[in-house]
Amino acid sequence: MEPDERAWVDGLRRGDAQAFDVVFAAYRRRVYGYLVRMTRRRDAAEDLLQEAFLRLAQHAKRLDADTRLGAWLFTVAHRLFVSWTRAQHVRAQLAGDLPRSEPPTSDRSPLEALADSQAQLALERAFGALAPAYREVALLVGVEGLTPTEVAGILGEKPDAIRQRLARARTQLAAALGDHAPASWRTP
């Protein structure tokens, strides 16, 4: 645990709003990036981001002194995403079993529009094409730099399951990227 993070947790436990601001600034991009890439929707990701930080604020005084804020926030974000997905499924069923995802209205999703090169576009699409369970592990390990053990704790899964998902995510990403895969990925 970083010394800064320990100070932030201490501040939160005292109900210090400035400590909250620092934590929000430090983690909002990471949590939002995870939520956008999981929901594939900016509006939903914003709502879930707000809910995640509301829960942190409301839970601040009950945090343990050794709380790892990244893991805590991603655990909440994961649970919010799971609830959101269930709600989407229910809504789709109530609407007469329409497809789960909205059909794309243009060639590029808002997420893909951020890509400023063909390689980035291919990469964003490859991540988007992964099944959510694989995408989630790939994002938490690859983008967020969490260890597979930490990810297992966040998702409430066994480390073996995470290891398998990592391997499958990597294989599927390599297949989806094709020529856009980094050179090191193409060598056996």
């Binding site: 990036g33 983008v143 995510a169 895969a181 980094p182």
Partner: peptide, 18 residues
């Protein structure tokens, strides 16, 4: 290996912010 390769690839993803 999987972790290292995914980290390498993920560095190329564009940054997203609210």
């Amino acid at each position: 290996d999987d972790v290292a390769k995914l980290a390498e690839l993920s560095r190329e993803l564009p940054t997203i912010d609210v």
